[in-house]
């Protein structure tokens, strides 16, 4: 696979950024309008996994006030659109994160905050911390840094809004639904068969 090399990855990004290849051209006008509205109303689940969670209170309070971009914090996964995995994610936390993610209603997006979600960061040789978040959950936006400033997180939100509005790439939740076997296999590699209820059970009634 070409995307397994660094050059291949860069080429793939170029293709995704190109206007001609974007999904936008194949979308209906209603879908475009829906995406436009959707980008202006993002509800974030108030859940912090690691040390990066300390960057979220300044964003939601008066200093940076991200509500002006339509980003609001909510209490439960059922109401949320966005899950921020903020910092390192241990096995025990990851299990809870997956449960929360599967309870969220579609459309839903995942933001990986900090170096630890990208390649392990300073926990690269830890026995209990995952190294690549996108093996277990589809990540829509990565924000690197250890740890990123609130400005970086705001830029990540703006980029994600841009991606949603212009439908530059396929959203993560669609990938999670379509390639569920891949994600489930990776999750079972570390949890065994204990990750109940399964995604199929959750969505059994959806296709009928």
């Amino acid at each position: 696979m070409p995307e397994n090399t660094q050059e291949g990855f860069i080429d793939q990004q170029k293709v995704l950024d190109n206007e001609e290849y974007s999904i936008k051209n194949t979308q209906s006008i209603i879908q475009k309008a829906v995406d436009w509205f959707r980008a202006r109303s993002m509800f974030v689940l108030a859940y912090g996994t690691g040390c990066g969670a300390i960057e979220m209170p300044p964003i939601f309070t008066s200093r940076y006030d991200i509500e002006r971009l339509g980003v609001v914090g909510v209490a439960t996964p059922r109401q949320a659109d966005i899950l921020i995995v903020s910092g390192y994610c241990s096995y025990k936390t990851l299990k809870r994160v997956i449960r929360s993610y599967e309870q969220m209603n579609e459309p839903k997006y995942v933001i990986g905050l900090g170096s630890c979600t990208i390649n392990g960061g300073m926990y690269w040789d830890s026995y209990n911390t995952i190294k690549k978040l996108d093996e277990y959950l589809p990540v829509d936006m990565y924000i690197n840094g250890c740890m990123p400033r609130p400005e970086a997180l705001i830029e990540g939100f703006v980029k994600l809004q841009d991606n949603i509005r212009n439908a530059k790439s396929e959203a993560g939740y669609i990938q999670y639904r379509e390639n569920n076997a891949f994600y489930r296999a990776n999750q079972e590699k570390i949890f065994g068969k204990n990750t109940t209820p399964t995604f199929e059970e959750n969505f059994a009634g959806m296709n009928q």
């Binding site: 397994n4 090399t5 390649n119 392990g120 026995y127 190294k131």
Partner: peptide, 18 residues
């Protein structure tokens, strides 16, 4: 006697660039 690095190398694969 638990070899952390050996455990990590066995159970995880790292992203390119590491």
């Amino acid at each position: 006697e638990f070899d952390t690095l050996a455990y990590v190398n066995e159970h995880f694969d790292f992203r390119i660039g590491r």
